[in-house]
């Protein structure tokens, strides 16, 4: 056990160090890539309001720190982040940190709801398909999976919005602030979350089905059956535990992707999440907002990977023994 603890501490430090290094490199890359975006960050100031004078432009440029050398801007930005300050937005009256603080919960909520729904749909379907491989239930599940994966989410979303607008007229568009009630807020998220969950659940089913087929073909299944366990007990009590390990990786990656990658769904349903924030920031050349948004989305991605990496030794005895030896 002592050996495992020491090995695990080293394992954690290694993973954490790698994640921090990736973030640092990413901050440099993002900082420079953002400056390659064509357009003047001052554009957001003027909109359709006329042409500013040269003096006015110079004043604003100085006020926003855009007249400083690039390396000065970078280190000031990085120093700010280390102190929890993501800087001021160039196009909004709210700081970048404030905006991320308001938008991230929407994205996390949407991603978590979608993930939970995907698991609720995907796990029973995947287990059933694995148990009854190449039989009618499996064929039905696989057909459903094909449809779920092959129909783009934005198409489903548009169809839902369009049909609803002409028929039921439910209020599907627009986020509800959690300050107005958790229930209302959650209800407003259900439909977009379900639309995101459908292809996600298809992926879960595919991984789980093949894992279950592999697990249920192993000799221990015969032993368990001989001990009198039912098919369901074997599948859910033993097969699923082993088959779900690769699925966990998929879940963590998809969950992290959902936090920043649901731009289209966020747009269609007017959810002020991180993806929408990033796109708005890019289109208005709002440097600090783009940098902050990418860094936070990347951090979520890295955090999810880190959590899964750190959980692996506890879920998979083979990895546990490897960590102990290292």
């Amino acid at each position: 056990m002592k050996k495992f603890r020491a090995g695990y501490a080293y394992y954690v430090a290694q993973r954490l160090g790698t994640a921090l290094l990736v973030l640092l490199i990413l901050s440099v890359v993002v900082f420079f890539l953002v400056r390659l975006i064509p357009g003047d960050p001052l554009a957001g100031y003027y909109d359709t309001h006329g042409t500013p004078s040269i003096e006015e432009i110079a004043r604003l440029r100085e006020q926003l720190g855009l007249d400083k050398a690039w390396y000065t801007q970078y280190f000031e930005w990085l120093g700010g982040i280390l102190q929890g300050d993501f800087g001021a937005s160039l196009t909004k009256p709210f700081s970048v940190g404030y905006q991320i603080g308001r938008r991230l919960p929407y994205s996390i909520e949407l991603a978590l709801l979608a993930t939970i729904m995907a698991l609720i749909i995907g796990i029973p379907a995947g287990v059933l398909a694995g148990q009854r491989a190449n039989h009618l239930p499996d064929i039905a599940v696989r057909t459903g999976v094909m449809l779920a994966i092959s129909i783009p989410s934005f198409l489903t979303a548009l169809a839902v919005v369009l049909i609803n607008s002409r028929t039921l007229k439910w209020n599907l568009i627009g986020a509800v602030s959690s300050s107005k009630g958790i229930v209302d807020n959650g209800i407003a998220m259900l439909v977009p979350a379900l639309i995101l969950a459908l292809p996600f659940s298809g992926t879960v089913v595919r991984y789980l089905r093949s894992g279950m087929i592999e697990e249920l073909a192993k000799p221990y299944r015969i032993t368990l059956a001989a001990k009198g366990l039912s098919d369901a007990e074997i599948a859910y009590g033993h097969g699923l535990r082993n088959a779900i390990i690769p699925v966990l990786t998929v879940i963590s990656v998809r969950l992290a992707t959902l936090v920043g990658g649901t731009v289209v769904i966020e747009n269609i349903f007017s959810i002020p999440g991180m993806g929408k924030y990033l796109i708005e920031s890019i289109s208005s050349a709002d440097y600090p907002s783009i940098q902050g948004a990418i860094l936070v989305i990347a951090s979520v991605y890295l955090l999810m990977s880190l959590i899964v990496d750190l959980l692996y030794p506890f879920l998979d005895p083979r990895i546990k023994s490897g960590v102990g030896e290292s």
Partner: peptide, 9 residues
């Protein structure tokens, strides 16, 4: 759009 606005700003 920001690129067009570049001309004005």
């Amino acid at each position: 759009y920001a690129e067009v606005q570049n001309v004005f700003t």
